[in-house]
Amino acid sequence: MDLSAINPVLLIASLMVAATPILLAALGELVVEKAGVLNLGVEGMMITGAICGFAIAVETGSPVIGFLAAAIGGALLSMLFGILTQYLMSNQVATGLALTLFGLGISSLLGQDYVGVRPPLTGGLFPDALADLPVVGPIIFGHDWMVYVSLGLVAGIWAFLKYSRAGLILRAVGESHDAAHALGYNVIAVRLAAIAFGGACAGLGGAYLSLIRVPQWTEGMTAGAGWIALAIVVFAGWRPWRVLIGAYLFGGVTVLQLNLQAAGVAVSAEYLSMSPYLITILVLVLISAGRGRAALGAPASLGRSFHASH
């Protein structure tokens, strides 16, 4: 056992990278659920984003365009879910699951020519001089620009939901779509916009995997990250800053587990793999104890179909 082999600075830096895909996807899903829609297709949208971003980045040589394409790809796929659930009133849970299966399938179809191809490298945001500073360098300045985008999104979504009128309308639609409708808001349009945003974020998360974290295209490469993102939204009680904590906690446990093993600490890997989920359950029990569903912060209309019958 050699704990000194673990460099805490590098550990924190790599947990930020490990957490970014699930952070992005969870932020998107947070907005979707705040609008009262439960989209279980995060995994499918992530992997579609992963291949769209990868393919376009390879073809154009530009990771920025790749990430844009990933967002568009994820949003397009989510529109399939949007049309089915919002106009055709299909069941959100079943449609979301179908979206995941569809996304996994279409991504491997799209990705056939990209196995083994290497993507263009995504650069850092800050100059090397800053990134080379001790301690703060790797943690604060050493990342690729997408990490900062994801952190900016946390703040942006928080401010949007809390302070903006549009955010208020979105929350109203999620809490009581009938009331929002009676006030004259277009429930379907708001929800479609939220679903598209969620798809775009999931696409970005997937592209972060294929363009930066791994970086390559492999079929099925999200390997369940979308489901973790879904769990983190619940863990966070539908609050953006807690999503950040949840994602970093999850990324932290993942990276810490690997580092402890590499350092020869005899911790059973199963326990560490379980721990984020155990923590999720624990948090759910604690924050909901005796105060009911509202205390959890779940939008009241979550998962319910809206049909303007009058």
Partner: peptide, 17 residues
């Protein structure tokens, strides 16, 4: 098979020397 986890494991090993 879990590319992200495999990549993270490789990174952890490399960071430890």
């Amino acid at each position: 098979f879990d590319p992200a986890k495999e990549a993270d494991a490789a990174t952890a090993l490399i960071e430890q020397g």
